[in-house]
Amino acid sequence: MKGSLGIGKRVLSAFIELVALLVFLYAFLLAAEYTDKGAVLLQAAGTSMGINQNSFTQFFYFVKDVFTGNWGNVSSTYSTLGGFSVVTVVGFSLPLTLFLLAISSLISVPIVVLIGIGYSRRVNTTTKAASNLYIGLGIVFPLFLVGAFLRFFLYSSSLIISAPTNNLPYWTFPTHIPVIDGLIHGNYAMASAGILVFIIPLLLMVFFSSTSMLQIYRSGILKSLNKGYLGSASSLGLPRWVVVRNYLMIKGSSELFRYIPIVMTSILTFDIVVEAVMTYRGLGWAFYESILTGSYFGAIFSLFVFGIVIIITSFLSGIIRVLTDPEAAGGE
């Protein structure tokens, strides 16, 4: 518990990252001003975002707008939510993305741990070869390709899984997630339709997230295999499974938490691609649609929300790492 988990340091670090993110997005806005497309868009946004002020004043206007939810509007050509405010679009799409990320993580993490344990033995085993093959498939096969193949087979077969474009409406309440809202209101038809639309994006996210996480988890386990305390634990007569549970699994998880920004960046990149390919109307789809329709504010604030998700995840994972890995706590 040295340094109270370093919470102060982590809060400061998260704050700096947030400011850096705001400056970065603001720089995007400034740069856009000098492009034809950007000039028209920013003029359309009016003076409420402080466009006609000097750079410092503009930045503070920008920060004020970010925190008061004045994020501009999406283009009228944006699909169902055309012409709505960016906040409304994010409000409807973010829950779907968080739902997808949460459920896929709940499934991927046990897969990662189970496959990762296969690396706890020094000798080469069939399990290890199979795990390597699993990781290799995740690297070699591009996500969009697998998604496109699945789309193809969905269209050409009579599977009960809904065609990806057959999405449900945004207007479900209170969570905006059709599966949950359907269950809340007893509308089981909507809930089951929601599940059918959700299955393929979920499977894709589980496979690609788990292969991405497994690479880092494996690295953590392999690194700790040479540590002296593992030899001591084994020579003390501790059963193999105890060594794996008390040391190796923790080291693997610790490595995962250590590299969480890279892991999250990969997972959110997968998310954007999955949502775009499968027409799953979450935040990734909002970003994709914003780019296609030239909705500059929609694109930058979608990235802003993704950035916030990564900052929060990094903050929490830093604390969890210190709590679970004594070596990391010592290092802090």
Binding site: A20, I272, F306
Partner: peptide, 14 residues
């Protein structure tokens, strides 16, 4: 780390 705060494909496209 700052550059890793934004999904790669999103950053590249923007």
């Amino acid at each position: 780390n700052f550059f890793l705060q934004i999904p790669l494909i999103g950053l590249a496209i923007m």
